[in-house]
Design a protein around this nucleic acid. Structure first.
Ligand SMILES: [Mn+2]
Ligand SMILES: [Mn+2]
Ligand SMILES: [Zn+2]
Ligand SMILES: [Zn+2]
Lengths: 141, 141
DNA sequence: ATGCAAATGATAATCGTTCTTATTTGCGTT
DNA sequence: AACGCAAATAAGAACGATTATCATTTGCAT
């Protein structure tokens, strides 16, 4: 889906570290990755990229519109491939599993609320923290 | 409204630093304060409390249910007095002004979404980032 | 007033992230 | 294919927010 020239189109030279990071997001099991996640996964697969470079590249990709950054609880930034449609997140407090959802009613209510209060929305984040029911989840009874 | 014995009820000794911090939240102009905010305001009013103590006390108050902690963008934690009713926040990206709101429709939709996805909600945060229209706001045209 | 567990405050340590700078690389041009 | 150079990288220092350590102080039950 993404090609080396996606980088050029974004005004970024197609360098080895950038291609590796992009590749990781395209082929990783987990959609939502922190800088540390990216760094460690690259190390594990033998690719060695400096941690500073990972941070720099993630920020550049965010600015270029290739990635979206989220601030879930826990302090660290998490990134995912930007693939058009906006969505919100529900995070399992037991296993960290992240599920995505979109609810049109919520989105419109937000607009309404903001307008009534005299605000013009630029962005928003809705994070639901919950317990999931996946077999893998350590919380399962 | 809060008395020294609110602390005792929460299982916390009523010490000087704790009383000062609680007092600040009760009498401060701004409802939503960071640790740094609290520390500086105490210094300004002549009270001297160590920064470490401020952090410690804020966390204890959160655990005791006296304060609620929020993670707005910008990295630092922000606290406010817990006064019963849950609400969400809309933050001005220009002046930092925080407005509170509650929308029943949004709350119920969240429950619905979570249930459908097989999650049991424990908590959530909805932060709307926007431009406000207050006279004080530097963004005003 | 006394004793002691609990709390404080100064400072060191930690964590995620950004900055600095010497070295390397991508890539358009010979 | 070799050059030249701006742009990018890597290693480590620096940073800002927060937490941990530990010697000293304080609240409070006796
Ligand atoms: Mn997502
Ligand atoms: Mn609030
Ligand atoms: Zn789970
Ligand atoms: Zn404003």
């Amino acid at each position: 889906m993404h090609q080396p020239d996606h980088l050029k189109n974004a005004g970024l030279k197609s360098t080895l570290p950038r291609l590796k990071v992009l590749d990781l997001f395209e082929n990783s099991e987990e959609r939502h990755l922190s800088a540390e996640d990216v760094y460690k996964q690259l190390l594990t697969s033998g690719e060695d990229v400096g941690l500073a470079t990972v941070y720099r590249v993630l920020t550049q990709f965010e600015q270029a519109g290739l990635l979206v950054r989220h601030h879930f609880e826990g302090g660290k930034s998490v990134f995912e491939l930007k693939q058009g449609e906006h969505h919100d997140h529900i995070v399992c407090m037991q296993c960290g599993h992240v599920e995505e959802f979109y609810d049109a009613a919520i989105e419109t209510r937000q607009e309404k609320v903001a307008t009534e209060l005299g605000f013009a929305i630029r962005d928003h984040s809705l994070h639901i923290y919950a317990d999931c029911t996946r077999k893998k989840c350590p919380h399962r009874r």
